[in-house]
């Protein structure tokens, strides 16, 4: 019988994979993609909790998360385009002029 724990473990693994991606990739777009993975991991947990508790609030939250994620991607991609245009790079290691 597949229970809540299964879904939560899957969610945790997915979250960790996204995290590792953020830490290891250097391309801005890749990092944005990995953020999407993490969003989805959270979504999965919310939906699973909604089912476990027997109400729809979890699913409503997922609805909002999807909306916010869409907005985030829009702005993030705009910034990525700007970076590529102005600095001719998408490598986050090279965009380090905010130090000191």
């Amino acid at each position: 019988m597949i229970g809540l724990a299964h879904y939560l473990v899957l969610s945790a693994l997915l979250f960790a994979i996204g995290l590792i991606g953020i830490m290891t990739r250097r391309n801005v777009l890749m990092i944005l993609l990995c953020i999407e993975i993490m969003f989805n991991a959270a979504n999965l947990a919310f939906v699973a909790f909604a089912k476990a508790w027997g109400n729809l609030d979890g699913q409503v939250v997922v609805f909002f998360i999807i909306t916010v994620a869409a907005a985030e991607v829009t702005v993030g991609l705009a910034i990525a385009i700007l970076l590529a245009r102005q600095l001719k790079t998408l490598n986050v290691d090279e965009v380090s002029f905010l130090k000191w």
Partner: peptide, 17 residues
């Protein structure tokens, strides 16, 4: 301490994590 302030996003993320 300023060595920690690399200006790279991932360093800060690491701290956060």
């Amino acid at each position: 301490l300023r060595l920690w302030q690399t200006g790279r996003v991932q360093t800060y993320v690491l701290g956060f994590l």
